[in-house]
Design a protein around this nucleic acid. Structure first.
Lengths: 261, 261
DNA sequence: CTTAGGGCGTTCGTATTCGATCACGCCGGA
DNA sequence: TCCGGCGTGATCGAATACGAACGCCCTAAG
């Protein structure tokens, strides 16, 4: 994308780039103090880097560029976030201190992780690089990350190695998200590889939580993950449509709908 | 750390928090457009969140809080960065297109990863979560991450599982960094677990690159990693002190000193 | 020695953002 | 009905950041 040759930049500009990439944002004033130069000089650097599309300019500083590749992902993170957050809050309350849990790929599980930041008695195994990063923000729970291919679109870790890694554990709670649910309770996903990880998590969790916001009911996806018999608790944000209720009631599974509070 | 109860905040403030946590920084103006309210209201929100130590205030917006825990790490990232970058640039030139390589924990290897962003023919295996994140920024090389414990201090992934994961590969080049080098060529590190990963990388690389800036020569560290016989190429930024040269010349190892250009 | 050019500091007028204050509308309780 | 708290919008002077223009210093080429 950014086809500028970074390596030929002056030292100070390279360092600014480095700072911004690692910190996300730096104020002009911070850079002034850091380098001992005038604001004007910093601004010149920032403008130059900005014209090369290496950083994004703000009033008062500069930040990492809004990357085109994770933009759609960021959008997805937004849509239906209210529902996801409600679900996450509800699930977080049901995670006891000292529990061990799997968190797999998915925006809803990420929302859960956000709620769990600050808890410091948990042991978490995840194949989501964003979750691992999130939990690093504070001194808190132990985090293990699964090995495997890093998927650029969403930071998910997938592949046979990932599945094998997950199988090494047996934890209290497995939290999984999915792409869609059929009326008869068939759980679906778009990505074959992701399915394998989810199945490994299901097989090795004493209790399985499925988190799915309202949009998942009726959404078509290609790959079959399993059905309600694999799930112990289903968490959602709205009462599922009538057509889905029969299968839900027949299953030996508890349904939790987030309070509208 | 931040002992404020996030869950009781108004919806807009929670969303602001979410945006900042995911984007690193948002301008006041962006938030104004996003929520359709006046700048004044956004400022009130930002000030409130700032007093709760949940975000950091800037002129023109707000950003993620400069976390106390990775601060010492950030500092370490800074000191000697010039040298590290020079080394990184030199090594990057020696990584051919299509190569497969290990990158282990360490600030110098991170600097190398930064230089490799944009290359799109590489296959990279790493146990450094920062590197995995960095490579995600652009469409580029394939990245595999090792599984294991996520170390909060620096995002390194360590533990027996990590070592086992690394052993599954056999790659063209292994790039390792270390904490210190003795005069006789003994390679040292502070962390026992990290050593095991480095040794696994050495054993499974066709060529081993050691990257070490000038500060490493003579620094004492506790755990023995190996010696020059394990290394094929040593990259550094200054000619090593006289006392070290004999061992370096005796070893079957190429020494590369970064040009002062 | 002279000169041209790049990098940086300085100045100053302009643009933007900030905070204090007041006003309005929307509740819920007396 | 009245009242007070709360959240928001509006106004305006103060603080801050911005860009353009100019001059200085250093370096390299002639």
């Amino acid at each position: 994308m950014s086809d500028a040759d970074v390596s030929n930049l002056p030292v100070r500009q390279k360092e600014i780039l480095e700072l911004i990439r690692s910190q996300g944002y730096v104020a002009t004033e911070q850079l002034v103090r850091h380098f001992g130069v005038t604001p004007q000089t910093i601004r010149r650097d920032i403008n130059l880097l900005c014209e090369l599309d290496l950083i994004e300019r703000f009033h008062g500083g500069a930040g990492r560029i809004g990357n085109a590749y994770n933009q759609p992902y960021q959008d997805r993170l937004q849509e239906g976030m209210d529902g996801k957050r409600k679900i996450a809050r509800m699930v977080a309350k049901r995670i006891p201190d000292g529990a061990s849990l799997f968190l797999n790929i998915g925006t809803t599980t990420e929302a859960l992780a956000a709620e769990l930041v600050g808890r410091n008695d948990l042991r978490i195994v995840t194949n989501n690089i964003n979750i691992a990063n999130m939990m690093r923000e504070t001194e808190g729970s132990d985090v293990m990350i699964a090995g495997g291919f890093v998927r650029q679109s969403d930071g998910g870790i997938v592949g046979e190695a990932t599945t094998e890694f997950l199988k090494q554990f047996r934890l209290d709670i497995g939290v999984i998200g999915i792409s869609g649910i059929d009326e008869d309770g068939t759980l679906l996903d778009f990505d074959y590889q992701e399915i394998r990880s989810a199945q490994a998590i299901i097989q090795n969790s004493r209790t399985v939580y499925l988190v799915a916001d309202a949009a998942k009911f009726g959404r078509r996806a290609m790959v079959r993950l399993g059905d309600y018999s694999n799930i112990d608790h289903l968490f959602t944000d709205q009462t599922p449509p009538q057509a889905f209720m029969q299968a839900i009631l027949d299953a030996e599974m508890e349904l939790h709908v987030a309070d509208v509070i």
